Computed example of a mutant assay.
Amino acid sequence: MRVLLALGGNAMTAADGSATPDAQLAAVGVAMEAAARLVAEGHELVITHGNGPQVGNLLVKNELAAHVVPPVPLDWCGAQTQGTLGFAILDALDGALAAAGTTHPVAALVTRTLVDRDDPGFTHPTKPIGRYLAEDQAKAMVAHGQVWEDRGDKGWRRVVASPEPLEVVDVEPIRALLAAGHVVVAAGGGGIPVVRGDDGRLRGVEAVIDKDLTAALLARTLDADVLVIATDVDHAAVDWGTPQQRDLGRVSLAEMRRHTESGQFASGSMGPKVDAATRFVEGGGPRAVITSLTHITEAVEGGFGTVIEPEIS
């Protein structure tokens, strides 16, 4: 099967959230052991990944060095982290494949995602990113053209646009690499956000695209057989944190819609993952799964995790 594996940010850092280079490499190594199992089973594999902690690292460097060098824009941060994580994933996947007794060509592609230049988020940005700063520090960044908001006792925080992904611009190179037998790492962090000007040319913009929504879009575009959204729990659950909490196994698209409409999934955690999974199935995808890395192989076969299908017979 053709599998789109979307790795959450937890797959790129230590369990305690540490994002030191050693911690990131160790976490990526664990994730790639799971990915290698899929390849060893004979599946075609495309990997996407989060980059929140890595971009956050660059933003702190921007803030600390703003009086010396101009801050690096978000599209550049996305490109840099795609390159850094891409090479880390490739090294780890090569090693995991060798340990599994197989070899396979692997490639990472710096990937752009088209968004609407008229998206309302560009006029009224609402997506908070980075750390809180004191007012004087925040206003120093405002002087560089950034938008910051006063969040009360916590301090000031930067807000940016989070536009809807419309198209993965570099999908044809991804197809070519898959056709040549490669495992492909692409669209990290939701892709580098770009808009198309009146002259038809693309240019990067300051924005953050939801990585899971781009994963769903890419999975549909590539006619993937299954979208697997890997997170730190085995299942999505309803009535989370209450005595009535219940893990979801195989569910129909209609049932998952009902749970979403009743507010079961928090916008800051499981909500975006459920949204992406249901979008993939709504768009004609055969199956989407939300589960932990430990159970990736069973998830692809539909035997574990929260499995969303068009209908349940």
Rank of each mutant, 00 (worst) to 15 (best):
P70W: 11
D275A: 14
A34E: 09
L114Y: 10
G52E: 00
Q54Y: 00
A134E: 12
V106M: 08
S267Y: 05
V39P: 05
R151H: 14
L93G: 06
V289K: 04
L74H: 04
D223H: 14
A237W: 03
L248G: 00
G181A: 11
A180E: 11
P243M: 02
G200A: 02
T291S: 12
G155D: 15
N10E: 10
E301K: 14
P165E: 07
V208T: 00
A34Y: 13
D198N: 09
Q80T: 12
P193W: 06
E41P: 02
V226A: 09
F265E: 07
L109I: 14
R196G: 00
L109C: 13
V106E: 06
G152L: 05
I192P: 02
A138M: 07
V3C: 14
G8W: 02
Q244F: 05
A236S: 11
L64F: 15
M270H: 07
A187I: 01
A11M: 03
T294A: 13
A40E: 03
D247M: 08
E172Q: 13
V30S: 10
L38F: 07
S252F: 10
V233N: 01
D119R: 14
V46R: 03
V159F: 10
V110Q: 13
A179Y: 09
K61Y: 14
A26I: 07
V60D: 13
V115M: 10
D198G: 04
A34D: 07
E206P: 02
L58K: 10
A66S: 14
V110G: 06
I47G: 08
A79Y: 00
A277S: 10
